[in-house]
Design a protein around this nucleic acid. Structure first.
Lengths: 225, 225
DNA sequence: ACCTGAACACCGTTCAAGT
DNA sequence: ACCTGAACACCGTTCAAGT
């Protein structure tokens, strides 16, 4: 078999190409595909060549996270409507998680210190500033918003990625078949409906609750405390 | 060296003992300590003995998650105040994450189908029922509440666990030193404060926002839609 | 931030054999 | 849901040597 690889030209490999290969690998084959061996195949290079561009696997994941940040912010322009901006930014993160579940499961929530992350941080803080939040209030709500958006998007991505990669998804079937169902009447009463909740609807609700609280909070306590 | 282990008596190992060993291992040595080799040492048994009680490493993590559920719910009693109950349950999860960061980082957010998880599901649904929520509304808010509590607690646990295990924590120092700070004025303006936000305060805020929304929503739209 | 191949320590899992 | 030891396939990482 033609297993001997043609040698890569000097300087022909780049961090960008490696990250792109990692992303398409994860998209096609799921979470467990991101190994040095598979990356080497994908790049037609030695697995160890990656170490010339990333210090470790963890460092590569940071590079991947930065790329996901870039994809999420592509063509983003702030408007005059802070609430619309925060809704827009939130769904951008969500869509990235849906489009690249395995990559998002691995990389979303990683702090990159990259330029695109900084752009996102600034965009969120700008919106909160326009909402009237200042100083400590702005910072705390920045954290609340970020926790909500990144946490929800990553956890959704993990769920989607596990379906591709691993075991069955009918988890709820078993949990609601305890020995004595009458001991858990509230769980029993809604067990059918629990399986039908749309994660997207939950995310939208969660976002709406937070943005309404910001609106109300600013209106109610403009002088602080 | 006295490296030869005395043989374990037949039936002397149990799933409970293994989970307890895994937990104390994670508590003492951090996330990377949960391996079959270290578990074997801890139990004075062959690493492979664990396979008599758990089908795989993933299955062991489910057992660990179930144990964390049990620890979280220890001595829990519902009251007549649904809001106080939801606050209580939320902080129980948070405290488990703080007390066992490495274990919570690994196991929290895993669906166990276990009895203690079912108890928690029922307790949350009971509180939402007492808040006046029914059917679809109850189920959606159950998901919103669970996403918030489990997501926040696990992400906090991950943060705490990484400090023990891995690299430095001064991530923010670098991100806010871009080439041209004036391009990111909002981030620049609050960079000092961003590092000082207490995760516990953020969690409390987030919880308060959700519970207030439930109260307001029930008061505003008791007839639905 | 050059690329490769061999080697190392480690990790989850399997399985025949022991008690 | 018995326990052990040897073995297997795999994975991240290092490093001397090649271009």
């Amino acid at each position: 078999m033609a297993e001997s690889r043609s040698r890569r030209k000097r300087g022909s490999l780049s961090a960008e190409e490696i990250v792109a290969a990692a992303l398409s690998l994860l998209d096609r084959e799921g979470e467990s595909a991101l190994t040095f061996a598979r990356l080497g195949q994908e790049l037609s290079a030695s697995p160890t060549a990656v170490y010339r561009h990333f210090a470790s696997r963890a460092d590569l994941v940071v590079g991947l996270a930065d790329h996901l940040d870039e994809l999420s912010l592509d063509d983003y322009e702030p408007s005059d409507d802070w609430r619309a901006d925060l809704v827009d930014l939130a769904w951008r993160a969500w869509r990235t998680a849906v489009n690249h579940p395995a990559a998002a499961a691995e990389a979303m929530g990683v702090i990159t210190n990259g330029i695109h992350e900084l752009r996102a941080v600034d965009a969120v803080l700008r919106a909160l500033h326009q909402a009237g939040l200042r100083g400590r209030e702005a910072v705390v709500h920045y954290q609340v918003y970020t926790n909500l958006v990144l946490g929800s998007a990553q956890s959704h991505a993990m769920h989607l990625a596990r379906v591709v990669d691993g075991a069955a998804d009918d988890a709820w079937v078993q949990i609601y078949t305890p020995r004595d169902p009458s001991q858990y009447p509230y769980a029993e009463a809604v067990k059918a409906e629990l399986r039908l909740v749309d994660p997207e609807e939950v995310f939208g609700r969660q976002l709406d609750i937070l943005l309404s609280a910001i609106t109300a909070g600013v209106a109610a306590a403009p002088a602080g405390a």
